[in-house]
Nucleic acid binder design. Structure first.
Lengths: 230, 230
DNA sequence: ATATATTTTTATCGAGCGATAAATATCAAG
DNA sequence: CTTGATATTTATCGCTCGATAAAAATATAT
């Protein structure tokens, strides 16, 4: 209460007595603003952070949140969808499978697009907050990455290297290898937004180098997997 | 209160009326038990988890915690030291700098030892919980890894490849490259303990492959850095 | 057995949480 | 200018949190 007058004078507010009042907003606009601000807020302070502080940062009062969301959990779920799930681009899967182009080019295009999404403070932190809690939304996302992106890459790699499609199933080693590439690229985001140490280098270096390292190491591992199955 | 009788019958407790009482313990023993249980507890549920549940899981009452720790923050700090900071092994730094052996062997020894420490559920989760909060203990640890492990690796790599010591300072590219190796290896721990998907493959595969990929890619990047500075 | 020391529990405080209901201010239509 | 609809605030409930102080139970020494 001591800082209720210390907000400074926001443009959208009119000082009235000791209270301040927000200008009325049409519901959809207020709701989307709420989701947007809540995204920043929970990404920064975690899901346990209080709704009163969130409301204060938005310049509204806390009960107003509950006009637009049934519960805090409800709000967080909508925000998570907005920040993480909704950012999935179906083009990723088609790009990776387009055999009219060299795999290297496809990987470049895919990962540069992928990183536009995941090299985002909100995205990374939400993802890890959700992962540390046992929220299955996180597990489901990882499964999706695994099934729709990484496994297809393994398949495409074999095709690129001229191995028959019906060779033995993708080996654990092949799968681990593509996870290593994924690790190199995604770890940039972790360093930047969780460790808060940003590399002074273009993220493109990590992406390009990771792809290069993957494609150089792949042939022998794929070969071993294919001949082991015969 | 409904589950106060649902604990099952722990050996150390004697049922008395509706309450249960713990056998007395010498202070050091109680304190170390507290740190150990708290490590599991906070690693699992995060720092915001309540002291009452922690106490219940230990079979003691909540105020007893405050006989051994001034505050919850105090407890968490001691646990963090115990779980993360205290696990640092000085031998890592000496191993990496021992030029009587090939760098590849040193990296193997170092990373296998390093992973004995960090492929640990408590370690990983504590590290990320601390990172997501702005606890500087995390930042300090990352700085330490960077300064005492990764940068030395860059230096040793140059020596191994026969470049003069006084060549230009380690380039951003060289430094990024060693971070890529670190990423591949540490990401295993993230997958296992944050995503909760464990690879069915020996972690040694990731370690060995990551080192191999690093050493294969390194020469051209080191060469570029050294000739660029002339 | 009794007394003493100290571990552990019981009881409780004040603050903050998510959430609800009622009052109030604002905007648009007539 | 008045009226009706509704976005927003005020006031408050019940609960849980971290923390403290006093009471009780246990172990040890005599």
């Amino acid at each position: 209460m001591s800082d209720s007058s210390a907000h400074g004078k926001e443009t959208r507010r009119t000082a009235r007595g000791r209270g301040q009042r927000t200008t009325r907003l049409p519901p959809e606009e207020r709701k989307s603003m709420l989701i947007d601000k809540a995204a920043d807020f929970f990404a920064e302070h975690g899901f346990e952070a209080g709704t009163r502080v969130l409301a204060e940062e938005m310049g509204i009062t806390q009960p107003l949140i509950y006009r637009y969301f049934e519960s805090k959990e409800d709000l967080i779920n909508e925000v998570y969808s907005d920040v993480c799930v909704a950012k999935w681009r179906p083009e990723w899967e088609t790009t990776l499978k387009d055999r009219s182009r060299p795999l290297k080019d496809r990987l470049h295009d895919f990962y540069h697009s992928y990183c536009e999404v995941v090299y985002d403070r909100r995205w990374v932190r939400f993802f890890f907050f959700a992962g540390l809690k046992e929220l299955d939304i996180n597990t489901r996302y990882v499964t999706r990455v695994s099934e729709r992106l990484l496994k297809p890459i393994c398949v495409e790699l074999r095709a690129e290297l001229g191995h028959p499609e019906d060779a033995p199933a993708i080996s654990e080693e092949e799968f681990e290898l593509v996870w290593l590439m994924q690790a190199m690229i995604f770890y940039q985001a972790i360093r930047a937004h969780i460790y808060r140490i940003r590399a002074n280098l273009d993220p493109a270096f990590a992406i390009d180098t990771a792809i290069e390292m993957y494609l150089r190491t792949a042939p022998e591992i794929v070969a071993k997997a294919c001949e082991a199955g015969k």
